[in-house]
Amino acid sequence: MTTEPTVHDAIEMELVQKHASRPEVPETPTPVIQVEDVSVFYDDYQAVRDVTLDIGHNEITALIGPSGCGKSTILRSLNRMNDLIRGARVTGAIRYWGQDMYEPGVDPIEVRRRIGMVFQKPNPFPKSIYDNIAYGPRVTGMKVDDMDAHVERALTRAALWDEVKDKLKQSAYGLSGGQQQRLCIARTIAVEPDVILMDEPCASLDPIATLRIEELMAELRDLYTIVIVTHNMQQAARVADRTAFFTAAIDPQTGERHGELVEFDKTTTIFERPADPRTEGYISGRFG
């Protein structure tokens, strides 16, 4: 019944202000990743067809759409995590700074080091907080002079340092869900990637933890290129510079469902003046 501002409202307010004060998004992005006519197949089934979009440098790009529209599938193909699924196959080209990341000879491990990923469910390793962060630099053979300082920097960037600085040697499983997810972001940052992919990073978090992550994303945008898949359209509207709307269409000939990209534009355009009636329907149905 009370209308007193909650923590949630306070953070949301701050976020909206921050969002409003950010610089104008350019008309065309400076592409870090170019997705050209990409289809993803699982064995013979075409899960997503003919997607073309550019992921802009130091921008947040949101992929939205109903379940089964293939947005997560596209996201997982951006750092070759799809390689790990048996029978998965990508056609078309995905270029990273102009180089096709699927061309023969490219090491998928090198791709994943530069293009990190944060998952739907927080997945810290069963190790200490410190070792979770130090894991990436160690396995990738990064030259780190002072690991303690490196860990501190990653945790600070992920806005987690103050909360965990006294328990670095404790298990990461002692943290709350939201803290675990920020730890996973810090873990990704620690290998100094270029791009961070986030697959519904707030799906298992409460509203306050969700806003903390969004706030963090807004800060990280200055340092990294971020691509986020989300079910939550307010989230896309709050954080994303550009938004791609996907949907699932049924092929009239085969009767199979395929995901496809409907519209890709600046977030303001997608939410205020969508060009495609399907986008408008989705947005107004869930948002208005």
């Binding site: 700074w97 090491d107 998928p108 530069r114 920097r153």
Partner: peptide, 20 residues
């Protein structure tokens, strides 16, 4: 120019190496 971030490579650079 922002500290800590990877510089954008010059056009045509091939960043991704082969795994060996």
């Amino acid at each position: 120019a922002v500290p800590g971030r990877l510089a954008a490579p010059a056009p045509g650079t091939r960043i991704l190496r082969s795994g060996n």
